[in-house]
């Protein structure tokens, strides 16, 4: 990211401004404006006589709505921890290149490209009550009754894992393999074994990237919608906050209340980001990694 240099002269001429205008106008009109508008209408409740915060008050006073925060959190947090830990182990183990790298990465981007709807449909078939996995386990005799892996929070967490793991793994693999390999060599020459190298050299260098990956995965998981509906139990144990917002908007047609819920969802994500950034700041990383391979 470019740094602000106070002495740098602005190089914005008319052509440059003309080039920037369309996209900037678009982002302002279709992203910034709706955001502000959403906040505005969330403060204009449907009921005429209600106070401006009545939507928010209603949300937090209604356990059915309010619990969606907890529900979403309980789905997003385990998913994120699992995704980040597994991705870290694998990416670290493969930092010096992997066999069939291109094939593996291609297969891994498949779930990202296919999208969540297809994936959920497949999960229902494969891991469902009568799915291939249960049939196999029953046939082998490992279980007596089919495992209930779908239509509950396990299914949702699994679906989120499938979507976010490749994303996180590839990000971390790129990040870790960008760390100069001679740092490891020099640590070895100074007497460090593999575990010491990880703990004292590599982990501190990976940590900043790891924290960003954690933040991205968490925020994405927190907005879970389609998998919560399809492989979860949208009326019960996996009624996430985006389902609540969607229902208000498109089933109750209360855009004001829906916007309020969307704002609350955004604030939760923001809060998580702030916590994560604070954690990152505490791990004093005073350096740029200027020596990595390009």
């Amino acid at each position: 990211m470019a740094r602000i240099r106070s002495d740098s002269r602005s190089e914005l001429d008319l052509v440059a401004i003309l080039c920037l205008t369309p996209s900037l106008l678009y982002v302002l009109a279709m992203f910034v404006y709706p955001f502000l508008y959403g906040i505005y209408i969330s403060l204009q409740p449907k009921k005429r006589d209600a106070g401006i915060f009545s939507n928010y008050v209603a949300f937090f006073n209604d356990a059915y709505q309010c619990n969606t925060i907890k529900t979403t959190f309980m789905l997003a947090l385990p998913t994120t921890i699992a995704v980040v830990l597994v991705a870290l182990f694998l990416a670290y183990g493969m930092r010096r290149g992997i066999w069939f790298e291109r094939t593996i990465t291609t297969i891994l981007v498949l779930p990202i490209s296919l999208g969540v709807v297809f994936l959920s449909e497949g999960i229902l078939g494969f891991y469902g009550h009568n799915g291939w996995l249960n049939q196999l386990l029953l046939a082998v005799g490992l279980i007596q009754n089919p495992l209930e892996l779908t239509h509950n929070s396990i299914g949702v967490i699994f679906s989120l894992f499938m979507q976010n793991f490749p994303f996180c793994f590839l990000m971390l693999l790129g990040y870790i393999s960008g760390i100069d390999p001679s740092l490891e060599s020099s640590a070895r020459m100074l007497g460090a074994g593999p575990w010491t190298i990880f703990r004292r050299v590599m982990f501190p260098l990976i940590a900043p990237g790891l924290i960003i990956a954690f933040a991205l995965v968490f925020v994405m998981s927190f907005a879970v919608f389609p998998s919560a509906v399809m492989v979860g139990q949208p009326a019960g144990s996996t009624r996430t906050i985006s389902i609540a917002a969607y229902q208000q908007a498109f089933e109750q047609y209360d855009m004001s209340y829906a916007s309020a819920i969307a704002v609350i969802m955004g604030l939760c994500q923001l809060a998580a980001l702030v916590v994560i950034v604070l954690v990152r700041r505490r791990m004093t990383i005073a350096t740029t990694m200027g020596v990595g391979k390009r």
Binding site: D180, S182, S185, S186, R188, M189, I285, T287, G290
Partner: peptide, 18 residues
Amino acid sequence: PEKRGFGMVFQNYALFPH
């Protein structure tokens, strides 16, 4: 290498940036 007791200096210095 960590048990050989040799010292090594690398082309790109390989100092631990953290």
